[in-house]
């Protein structure tokens, strides 16, 4: 069983997630796209684990999940805070820090 299709799928999902981050404006959706990218990389890690025959890749994916969990908690809290003060969840509205 070749692993290349898995990797290619991972790459495609990652790219879609990246484009999503660039095009979507709802902060929550942008965040979802980030999660999609993380998941895509997890898929690649697990695939590599299988290809190399050890569990290190799976451990790495596990850590990615842990970090993603922490990140989501803080990120969503930030989105909430911004929404509370600005009544908007658009990432374009929070653009005061500029020239």
């Amino acid at each position: 069983m070749s692993v290349t299709p898995f990797i290619v799928l991972s790459a495609i999902l990652f790219t879609i997630g990246a484009v999503g981050v660039l095009t979507r404006r709802n902060a929550i959706v942008v965040f979802m796209c980030v999660e999609l990218m993380l998941n895509a990389s997890n898929l690649a890690l697990i695939t590599f684990a299988k290809a190399n025959g050890n569990l290190d890749g799976q451990i790495a994916a596990f850590f990615v999940m842990v970090v993603a969990a922490a990140e989501v908690v803080v990120g969503l809290a930030i989105i909430m805070t911004i929404f509370r003060t600005r009544r908007s969840a658009s990432v374009d509205d929070a653009s005061l820090l500029k020239y």
Partner: peptide, 18 residues
């Protein structure tokens, strides 16, 4: 990315049976 991955040969898949 896809082209790059396609060009790389991963080698024999060891598998996780062990």
């Amino acid at each position: 990315l896809v082209v790059g991955i396609a060009q790389v040969s991963v080698g024999t898949v060891v598998g996780l049976d062990e």
